[in-house]
Design a protein around this nucleic acid. Structure first.
Length: 885
RNA sequence: GGAUCCAUAGCUCAGUUGGCUAGAGCGUACGAUUCACAUUCGUAAGGUCGCAGGUUCAAACCCUGCUGGAUCCACCA
């Protein structure tokens, strides 16, 4: 016997994964397709294809619990479609994670007493490359430990040559289409990391601040205008004071100038909608170089932009010698003091406002004027919206489609420049003489020469989302003019939190580059929260490592555990308890298999399997429905039923329900009832066939234990991963129905016995005899009933009923127990009568309503009538029992 | 300010076009045990489905309002 008495995942998982990989089963053709070719020369010859990509985890990082969920979902889909016989391609990836990795690297640089400024960009790039190569591999091992059946030879790294080539091609196309422009705009600049960020990369936090009122004297007048500001230090960059055009208080001041305090400049008073008469004093200072709204006001009124804060977060020369070089905080303090001394500070009050922070280092983001590359997104967004509205992509959850459309409608131009060395270089060179920019892909050179003219490379790199928005295109090797059955992807599975950052951009880019949407369906998963519904975070100390779970309980247990109770788009709690119950299921299945193998061994002997028996066994669908044991018809029906459910659930991404369906099939139906019946009947071919079907159905969710069992069974061949999804079992529906009745009799017997034993100390259930009247069902199955109900014997009454009659409609059954035992049970009986009475009342109420009888469907009314009749006869019987006591 | 989602047993969640006498797992209580499995088996208790209205023969489900919670977007001089 190969089966140990319990399943030890750690002993099997690494070998099994290696066996799959060695057999090339992860390639899209697999062994099923035979040729391992991506696709046939004639696409009509091909089976259906199924493609899915892995959102690339950070190449030099470790997987967190969210990756665990990602892989559990994606690999279940992959394995399911592979078993269905589709050419399934799950493409793994690794992300250079531009900013993330850069932050980690810069930290190690600083820890060694260096700074980024000591090196050229090319040197830094080379250093990080080496750093990442050293760290790489960890993540890939972890993806394997989770059982991901992805095609490793197709792994795409976000800096791979073909990715860069594709990104450059797109950029060039955009450049030629006039969608790329260089502009000096306000960008979210982190003074610590020295780089710009996209809007979605900054975190807004509510903070306590102060609102100061500052008087600006009106030129050639004794009047003054008081502005409200939270950032007095930006005063040096003021170029106007704005008031609302409707604001009567200031109407006559518009067009005049004010003296800008602490400086010798005069700035105009302008009228602009931006000024809210209700807020503060209704007058607002305009600083286009350091505030987004002011920037727009400046555009409208063609005002100059005066930058007064440097990239290092210190005040520039143009603020005057007293202020230049101060940090913004120092400058604010000094400016307020000076204003107060000048008698211009008129008030100060507390307020809470939201402030942008760097999502990585929490430094306050300084809106800063910078020359950057921008993508004009109007056309991209418009096309994306059109295709979304035409329902070309199905969303799970469905509501996110509209959310995405709303986002695209308000999308601003996309700043794609980042001041980080670690990334794909922007392929633009500038003629230092003329200032002209040209496109060139020779980004390995910092300078190039064309027709004797010298061009210098832009030092910036692309926003990672610009390259990763090509992900479905580059992973599937899509090429213009070639047929590619794997593009568009069947599904894009990723976190709901990157709907805007990534999904939106992949759709825009896919449409722009290929003219087609990049995927047919989007499944978004929510955040994995801790057991108490809290976000996992290092500072809270509630972070769970998926690999720890795998080590402790096994990969399958983790996968089933994390899928449980989870639905699309929802942030849901994760509890270790679900993993424990997943582990228990694996062990249960293991023992079921162990038991079945032992029966096979007893009857055949493992060595003596003849070719003839093999034929019988390998025919998974028995031609004739099983006879004799009705439990066999029943389990065949239940397995079919479960399989149909799983097929429909998988189509709708209801993974949690599939796990639930399988759990109940394996445990509550197969092990608790069917295998119990087989202790008497031992229909070996059917035991084998049903076990095989269950292993296949569970394989997508618990790949390791199912494969481990498959390998340990004496009669199976090949790898489970490469088998075919089961088809229908034949069965006799009447037998199946009868077995269910038998189950009902057994449960009721057990429950009554339990009631008796609770009411009577020392009562022995196992010594009790069950008597039956005129009942062919029980008569035919007395041995089975005796075994399942765990009674001493099941025999006919022979016309002499005695003991306690069971309250079952259509069956005359008695537990042969003394009257004293029964009388102690009277209270339980009384409760039962009351509860059935309540059910009967509610049914009668319904029938007494003439509208119900009139308007409800006839079948439903009929069913209610039948139910009432049943309940009435049941209550009658219970009352008789009570009388008898 | 705009939007989306959520509220069902002690806990975590199912409940697909209204037909429910509202389910599961865990937990709890009681009982079993040389049986493939104590990672086991059996039985049971536990719920005015957030609140208030409405539509309907019928509402956990549809509509309106409210309360509480989560998330996203925008704004906050």
């Amino acid at each position: 016997m190969k089966f140990a008495s319990s399943y030890e995942p750690g002993e099997y998982e690494p070998d099994i994964y290696a066996a799959w990989e060695a057999a090339d089963e992860f390639l899209p053709g697999g062994k099923v397709g035979g040729d391992n070719k991506l696709y046939d020369d004639n696409p009509n010859n091909d089976p259906k294809t199924y493609s899915i990509v892995m959102p690339p985890p950070n190449a030099n990082g470790n997987l967190h619990i969210g990756h665990g969920l990602t892989i559990a979902i994606e690999d279940s889909l992959t394995r399911y479609h592979r078993l269905r016989g589709e050419k399934t391609w799950y493409i793994p990836g690794a992300d250079h994670a531009g900013f993330e990795t850069w932050v980690v690297y810069e930290r190690t640089l600083e820890a060694n007493g260096h700074t980024r400024f000591e090196y050229s960009r090319d040197e830094l790039y080379a250093k990080v490359w080496d750093f990442v190569q050293e760290q790489r591999g960890n993540m890939e091992l972890q993806v394997r430990a989770l059982g991901a059946s992805c095609s490793w030879k197709d792994l795409t790294f976000t800096l791979d040559e073909n990715v860069v080539r594709r990104v450059y091609a797109t950029f060039e196309k955009m450049w030629q289409d006039g969608m790329i422009y260089r502009g000096e705009k306000l960008v979210n600049f982190c003074p610590k990391h020295q780089t710009a960020f996209a809007d979605i990369e900054v975190v807004h936090k509510d903070e306590k601040g102060k609102l100061w009122d500052i008087a600006y004297p009106v030129v050639d007048s004794d009047k003054e205008i008081i502005v409200s500001t939270t950032r007095p230090e930006t005063l040096f960059g003021d170029v106007a004071v704005a008031v609302n055009p409707e604001d009567k208080r200031y109407k006559d001041l518009v067009g005049k100038s004010v003296q800008l305090p602490l400086t010798d400049r005069e700035i105009p008073i302008i009228a602009d909608e931006h000024a809210d008469p209700e807020y503060g004093t209704g007058a607002v200072k305009i600083t286009p170089a350091h505030d987004y709204d002011d920037y727009e006001v400046g555009e409208r009124h063609e005002l100059p932009r005066i930058q007064v804060i440097g990239l290092d977060g210190r005040m520039l020369e143009n603020c005057g010698s007293e202020y230049a070089g101060l940090t913004t905080a120092e400058c604010r303090k000094k400016a307020l003091k000076d204003l107060e001394e000048a008698g211009l500070l008129r008030g100060e009050k507390d307020l809470v406002h939201s402030v942008a922070h760097c999502y990585k280092c929490d430094t306050v983001i300084e809106p800063t004027l910078k020359e950057q590359w921008f993508v004009d997104v109007k056309r991209l967004a418009k096309t994306a919206i059109e295709h979304l509205e035409a329902d070309e992509i199905k969303f799970y959850p469905a509501s996110r489609k509209q959310v995405l459309i709303n986002y695209l409608e308000g999308l601003k131009d996309w700043n794609i420049s980042r001041q980080i060395p670690w990334g794909i270089a922007i392929p633009m060179f500038r003629n230092m003489e003329t200032g002209e920019w040209i496109f060139d892909t020779r980004t390995n050179l910092s300078e190039i020469e064309i027709h004797g003219e010298r061009y210098v490379r832009d030092e910036d790199t692309f926003d990672t989302w610009f390259s990763s928005s090509h992900w479905p295109i580059v992973c599937t090797n899509w090429e213009e003019g070639e047929i590619n059955p794997y593009y568009p992807l069947n599904v894009m599975e990723t976190g709901a939190d990157i709907l805007f950052a990534w999904v939106a951009r992949m759709i825009m880019m896919g449409l722009y580059v290929t003219g087609e949407v990049p995927f047919k369906e989007v499944y978004l998963h929510g955040l994995v929260l801790d057991a108490h519904g809290q976000k996992m975070s290092k500072s809270k100390g509630n972070v769970l490592n998926p690999l720890d779970m795998v080590t402790k309980y096994g990969s399958d247990a983790f996968r089933m555990g994390i899928l449980r109770g989870r639905s699309a788009g929802m942030n849901q709690a994760f509890s270790e308890q679900s993993v424990v119950s997943g582990r228990n299921l694996c062990n249960k299945l293991w023992n079921v298999a162990r038991f079945i193998q032992s029966i096979v061994d007893e009857n055949n002997g493992p060595e003596e399997i003849t070719e003839a028996t093999k034929d019988v066994i390998s025919d998974i669908v028995p031609d004739e429905p099983p006879t004799e044991n009705m439990g066999e018809d029943w389990i065949c029906r239940e397995i079919n039923e479960a399989r149909w459910q799983i097929e429909s659930q998988m189509e709708h991404y209801r993974f949690a329900e599939s796990v639930e369906t399988l759990y109940s099939l394996v445990w509550d139906k197969y092990a608790d009832w069917f295998v119990e019946t087989e202790k008497i009947y031992k229909n070996i071919p059917l035991l084998q066939a049903t076990l095989e079907a269950i292993l296949k159905m569970l394989h997508p969710f618990a790949p390791f234990v199912t494969e481990a069992i498959w390998q340990n069974l004496s009669w199976t061949e090949g790898l489970l991963i490469a088998q075919k999804w089961p088809s229908d079992f034949k069965y006799d529906p009447i037998s199946a129905e009868n077995y269910e009745m038998l189950m009902n009799i057994v449960s009721h017997t057990r429950s009554t016995l339990q009631g008796l034993s609770e009411a009577n100390k020392g009562f022995s259930k196992a010594d009790t005899t069950l008597l039956y009247g005129d009942d062919s069902l029980v008569d035919d199955n007395s041995l089975l009933v005796q075994h399942l109900a765990r009674v001493k014997s099941v025999i006919p009454t022979d016309g002499q009923p005695r003991g306690l009659r069971l309250a079952l409609a259509n069956h005359e059954l008695y537990l042969d127990v003394p009257e004293k035992i029964v009388s102690n049970y009277a209270k339980a009986l009384e409760e039962k009568i009351l509860s059935v009475g309540r059910e009967l009342d509610s049914l009668n109420m319904r029938m007494m309503n003439p509208n119900y009888v009139d308007k409800a469907p006839a079948a439903l009314v009929e069913e209610t009538r039948k139910l009432i009749a049943e309940k009435e006869s049941l209550i009658e019987r219970l009352k008789q029992e009570r009388e008898a006591i």
